[in-house]
Write a protein that binds this DNA or RNA. Structure first.
Lengths: 248, 248
DNA sequence: CGGGATGTTGAGGCAAGTCAATCTAAGTGG
DNA sequence: CCACTTAGATTGACTTGCCTCAACATCCCG
């Protein structure tokens, strides 16, 4: 794996994701032991963290930046199963077998790496953390259910509306206006996530602009001008809640 | 909940799903304690086990029959997130909040019911079971990834081929030919699972018959006549493995 | 043996895909 | 600093797979 490994020792106590990640379930007394297992890494924008069917040796906890998870089919089609940000967990604890997805950094990425075996062993001896991870995994299942509904039943405007609302809620920076969405991924990535083509994403964006639903200063930041209408389009009764995600 | 509760005491040691369910991770010494928590129930074909947004008080382990899990949207669209059979777990351990999906019996259904709180407590005190359930949850996430790929990128013949192969592998009865699939659900259910209409399912079935891919004695049982071609259509490099599923 | 539910087949329409031509933005090197 | 390159985004014209609506067939169960 070609990534920078930082020389600075990690300090879990003052970690930026201490309270928004799985680590919030590790109490102070056990934090020291947990910390000794971790190594900081960095990946550059575009770098592959691990490839589908690769054997997973390390699980990563993202502290900064964003990654995409995808699987390519034999015919060259790509489905992006999700995007992961700060506080999210990358890599399957369970399997010594191959990774299900490829993980790639879409921005520069800071992560905390744990040897999979050690992490797994830590889980087996710390029931509360294991239970917490189980809860995260179940949230992930529900999130995937949501995505199945989106892919199975919604048309493209509904899909993009749902995606924009989700973006604006997850990963919003402290104190920032809730109706601003930073689009860190390309149009093609959005398309591969929402099960449409990038052309359709483009057309839907302009359609939203023409109808005053959104406003765009540049291609990477969208202001949601009419949240209720977007929510109605998306079929959301309320705003999606922030959650910890996991990517396998 | 309107369901029959059996008078016969359950005997976990000789349970039909003892070795193909989560219970296989409970060793004999702890089985007695586990057994005292369980109550057998039966649901009739068509009965609702729990409704979406219902508070979950009981988790069920299916011992016989099949259930479907779905969520209805405000506009009356339905997405079936999965089908569950013997050995599969029904109901979220984690949440005291509402169920994500509605669960309905599509055949007569025998289940083992556990009080959610008790089950959750048992997990917190039995790390190996908790870890085993975590592994099941991660398998479920991967299965949902697969389904996202199906819904996001595949056309209807590919979808149906994948579904038939999955059906023939999961829930196959002992010693039965692997290329026979029992279709316990309706065409509409298949459609709502695969993100198409029931008409499209019908048309694709006849298309498969005309091309010698399958043969049907009646509407409920399909013989896979050309598994390699179906696999190629589905984009499967190998047959899907049996797994324990979980439905929330 | 009827009647309601479920499944099949046909005809026509439309949302989104495909292909292709621009437009834009971000580098890169002279 | 500007010309050149390249990747990504947008827009348009055409095509298509699936949906919709509707008619008909079949199954199941009292």
């Amino acid at each position: 794996m070609f990534c920078k490994t930082s020389k600075t020792k990690p300090d879990c106590r003052h970690c930026i994701v201490r309270h928004i990640s799985l680590c919030s379930h590790i109490d102070s007394s056990e934090l020291a032991e947990f910390q000794t297992m971790s190594k900081r890494h960095q990946f550059e924008r575009g770098q592959i963290v691990f490839e589908q069917d690769d054997r997973i040796e390390t699980v990563f906890l993202i502290t900064r930046g964003m990654a995409k998870l995808y699987r390519d089919s034999a015919e060259g089609k790509r489905q992006i199963t999700g995007f992961l940000g700060p506080g999210d967990l990358l890599g399957s604890v369970k399997r010594s077998a191959g990774a299900y997805c490829t993980a790639a950094a879409i921005t520069n990425l800071d992560v905390c790496g744990f040897d999979r075996e050690l992490f797994s062993e830590f889980l087996r001896t710390h029931t509360s953390l294991c239970f917490a991870l189980l809860a995260v995994a179940m949230d992930e299942i529900e999130a995937q259910y949501d995505h199945s509904i989106l892919l199975g039943k919604k048309q493209s405007p509904e899909r993009l509306a749902a995606f924009l609302l989700l973006l604006s809620q997850r990963w919003k920076t402290e104190g920032e206006d809730t109706n601003l969405a930073h689009i860190l991924m390309s149009r093609g990535d959005i398309a591969d996530h929402l099960g449409v083509t990038s052309e359709t994403i483009s057309r839907t964006f302009t359609h939203f602009k023409e109808n005053g639903l959104i406003q765009m200063f540049d291609k990477k930041s969208v202001v949601l001008k009419n949240v209720p209408k977007l929510q109605h389009l998306a079929g959301f009764e309320e705003m999606p809640a922030h959650r910890m995600a996991i990517g396998l």
